[in-house]
Design a binder for these strands. Structure first.
Lengths: 350, 350
DNA sequence: CTGAAAGCGCTTACAG
DNA sequence: CTGAAAGCGCTTACAG
């Protein structure tokens, strides 16, 4: 059955025949049925208000009767608006960006936009191909997490005057608009908080990504500026998963000086650490305190609950889409940075 | 700058002017530059082998020189192939389907397909709109998780002879092809396993979704058929998250008869239960055993490690894409069901 | 408020 | 192996 359809594909006449047989109606069919021109049907579809009520009603009935579904591919070509937004994230399996993606997709679909999802992979290796794919599809906008560092891609996008929203960070020179927060400030805030709580020997557990590195630097800058010793630390190649936290716990125990608090670059790390500490009979936070990052659902649910930094990922997604909305409404966006901030959530683990 | 671009949009002449000014090259520009016809450039792009080597080289150089990026919207309209696949899942925030989505996106992008991501929401409420959107975009295929139960959508897809892959289940009558496993069999297997381990008073903790209900039924059928008492149980409205496991633990303690094992419909539930049990000083599995579902990363990382049912979500994604590949290669797919099976993973918690 | 017509940027059967 | 031409299904300025 499918093979048959494929065989037909090659020949336009056969294709037309095939469509007739299968009865996929097009705009013309609706127009004929309603006794109006194709132009009027198109207007009704895109801007019902400008069509006479009676005409509109006939068209509505014709659409219903024919089961017409507009061809957005053809529409996009004709109008130079794709109603498609590319969302590019590193991964989706277990990602801190998932709440952002979810919020974006929901907001965009309210506006009648579709989402083209691209996974850029570790270190954003596939970013250039995905940018190119987004341009190929004539995406109305590209939303990505992190900062676009690939120079050729940047130039391409700037050259095309593309709408690009960078999220989860505030680069000094965004391509277009950035929605995020200062990772450096997060690190500094955590340092200040821990100092206030009387901790003296922090140990940093970080993923090696750009953003985690900025938080780390923020912590170190603030901590040492206040006279603290340079913290001990451990780094992980890529993503920080639960398992790393466990491994880290063991490695930490072999350090010369025992830390009194561990600053983790994700709640997954913090969780892994916690589980391992409990299994080893180490009391948290009395013998070892733990701070996470992200305020994932688990942070509030673990025992002990995890002190962490809350990032409102869904809000980042909504703000990003909101920029697109304002643009679509003709507004010129003056700000190039939209800071959604963050909140340190004090719980039991530190 | 953006507002200016928008102002231009309305007028095609201005648009053409705008493009020239901004220099977005099209196929014709490449053809002119290479001294060949547009048809030949198109052929080179879609099937380099049928173009003479020297010609191809000139075209390649012209593409490079102009910075041409093909317009897949126009191409899609002309060829009736969108190279777009719609992937429809309930959510992406914390979903058991994420590994499947990830694998699909990666495999599809290898084939040069883009992914249109749709979130169907609780109870797949937005499924009909998303099906319609996918058809509007002329998606080459629609991959969805679960079974498509909405009758109008089913009819629409069947009427259009659409390529539809249903995943994570094996419905008796798939629309087209289904890739998944038997949830009933999972439940039965878990029952058999626990009986073999000597457990006598299972307690079922289930989400109310279709698939969880099938596993529950499979458990009950097998358990009672073997002479077991009908298990006690608790149900959750929608998704099963970590927090539910904690709440469930407390509720369970008020039951008349204390269960000796809890069968959870997800690893998140199991994890929540475990955390709460540990906090309450209840020993797992000696005083209370726990079984999860899904074999998420955390299942192997928790202390104690969680006995669960492994579903190879990534494989489901790959198999689904593989069906599309075989179709594209002209193969007729005889099987309507592709069973990827499951594995009970025996760990410490039960 | 509505219609006729041109055009969006490609692909592809046909003919050479 | 290559070109000329028709066509994919819409949108929209123009004219009424």
């Amino acid at each position: 059955m499918k093979a048959l359809a494929m065989a037909f594909r090659a020949d336009p006449l056969a294709l037309a025949f095939n469509r007739m047989k299968r009865g996929i109606p097009k705009l013309d069919d609706v127009a004929r049925q309603a006794g109006v021109s194709a132009a009027t049907v198109s207007r009704f579809l895109n801007n019902p208000g400008i069509v006479a009520t009676a005409t509109g009603e006939r068209i509505r009935a014709a659409i219903e009767a024919t089961g017409y579904v507009p061809d957005l591919v053809a529409g996009g070509l004709a109008s130079a608006k794709s109603r498609l937004v590319a969302v590019l994230v590193p991964d989706v399996a277990q990602s801190i960006f998932n709440a952002t993606v979810e919020a974006m997709v929901e907001e965009l679909s309210i506006d009648g936009h579709s989402v083209m999802l691209g996974l850029t992979g570790i270190e954003n290796a596939r970013m250039p191909q995905l940018i190119s794919a987004a341009l190929s599809r004539r995406a109305d906008a590209i939303i990505l997490t992190g900062i676009l560092s690939d120079k050729p891609s940047r130039d391409l996008l700037i050259g095309r005057n593309a709408t690009v929203i960078e999220t989860w960070g505030l680069p000094p020179e965004p391509i277009d608009v950035a929605v995020g927060f200062s990772h450096h400030a997060v690190g500094a805030d955590v340092a200040r908080f821990l100092r206030g709580r009387g901790y003296r020997r922090p140990h940093l557990l970080s993923a090696s990504g750009t953003r985690a590195m900025e938080r780390r630097q923020g912590f170190i800058d603030d901590w040492t500026a206040a006279g603290g010793e340079t913290p001990t630390e451990q780094m992980f190649a890529s993503q920080t998963r639960f398992g790393h936290g466990r491994a880290a716990f063991r490695a930490m125990r072999e350090l010369g000086t025992a830390p009194d608090v561990v600053v983790c670059s994700s709640d997954w790390l913090a969780q892994g650490l916690l589980v391992e500490a409990m299994a080893a009979g180490v009391k948290v936070p009395d013998e070892l305190a733990v701070v996470g990052f992200g305020n994932l659902a688990i942070a509030a649910e673990m025992r002990p609950t995890i002190t962490t930094v809350d990032i409102d990922g869904a809000r980042i997604g909504r703000e990003a889409v909101n920029v697109l909305r304002r643009r679509a409404a003709g507004e010129t966006i003056a700000e190039r940075h939209i800071d959604v901030g963050f909140r340190l959530i004090e719980r039991e683990s530190a």
